[in-house]
Design a protein around this nucleic acid. Structure first.
Lengths: 200, 200
DNA sequence: CCCCCGGCATGACGGTTGTCACCCGCGATG
DNA sequence: CATCGCGGGTGACAACCGTCATGCCGGGGG
């Protein structure tokens, strides 16, 4: 019997996944949580074998949750189930020691299979995504990332400079650098590309 | 017995929702489709009582699907189940004659309830969203929408002008108009706001 | 008929953005 | 010690952006 905890912020999806897993005779859904903090608490209370979690959740993300589990050396496997086919996310997930990474695009049956594989000590990583993950490294440094994030929200160079205690010229240098590294024409495209790759 | 067709592009969510509805004794999931076109075909083949559909799908969106059903006067109720709490979407959905509009944030049980309500001729609209929907009208006209969409993809005024066979000055006028109407400072924020409201 | 309005264009303005060359200070590395 | 790299800053320049005033045209509505 595999004991599972589910973390997913969209209630309907959470309920539906729970229903899906309940249909499997060898899987027992102990409970579910709507955000990272709640998941962390339930994790310690229910001591499941496997945590199935989304990435984008309020409070604590699935990736941060995985990191915590790794640091505390809890005997709990982690499977990420997410919408985002972003190579950067998978890479960060692997660094956080997760055992599985599935896309919500994948057939529903894969989830139960992945649970069994992982429970037996195996790994379940979306194969085509695994290729991309190591193909292209994030070329941005921390400053460039910060600046791009703010630029993507419509902040001007001056605003960003104030926010980060930099001169507005320096901000423009970082943006220019990022734009150059990503091979695009302006900040908007740079933001979109970096976001799509999971680098922001 | 309520006969349901499910349209949702993410396979795992599709399977999970199917599992969820299968647990209800009075609901029969006839089938499911991964995109709008497939849903339209299955609709005519399976003749369900209710279509449960996402909005964002490749090919044909859930809203367009609802429009088609309305135009052809098919005796099929439509329930939209979506991630997006965008007032503009709900308004367009209501114009397309849908009977239900639920958020994926809503508890899973709401879906089955909504199905029953709708099947009996009722409506199931997310209440707090319903308020917002009529509070704020879309202030943009067609040209402003087009221009804003392209601007949001990082296109410059010149690019957009070429794309739409306008002068680059005119494009800037439209952008300026949109920025003014939305009460923001630049095209990026204008794009984000319009998108968030479901106006793009 | 005239007048007004909406779509489109122009030109001019000041501010912002993207690029580049160059500067400084500082820690690492030789 | 020399010097190299790197994070941060300056200044200049061309291009672009956001704003505004102004103009033209065509189609209603009075």
């Amino acid at each position: 019997m595999i004991h599972v905890l589910l973390a997913e912020d969209q209630a309907m999806v959470r309920g539906a996944l729970s229903a899906l897993l309940s249909l499997e005779v060898d899987i027992d859904v102990l409970g579910s949580a709507a955000d990272g903090e709640a998941a962390w608490r339930e994790l310690q209370r229910l001591k499941p074998d496997v945590l199935v979690t989304d990435i984008e959740m309020p409070g604590l993300t699935g990736l941060e949750l995985a990191q915590r589990i790794q640091r505390q050396e809890l005997p709990i496997k982690v499977i990420i189930v997410t919408t985002f086919a972003r190579p950067g996310f998978l890479r960060r997930a692997l660094d956080a020691g997760v055992s599985g990474y599935l896309l919500k695009d994948a057939p529903a049956e894969h989830l139960a299979e992945a649970l069994r594989t992982v429970h037996c000590g195996g790994r379940a990583i979306d194969p085509q995504l695994a290729l991309e993950a190591w193909s292209e490294a994030d070329p941005l440094n921390d400053r460039e990332r910060q600046v791009l994030r703010l630029a993507g929200e419509g902040q001007s160079a001056g605003d960003i400079a104030t926010r980060l205690n930099l001169s507005h010229g320096t901000v423009r240098n970082y943006l220019s650098e990022a734009i150059g590294k990503l091979g695009v024409a302006n900040r908007i495209e740079a933001y979109r590309l970096a976001r799509q790759k999971g680098w922001l």
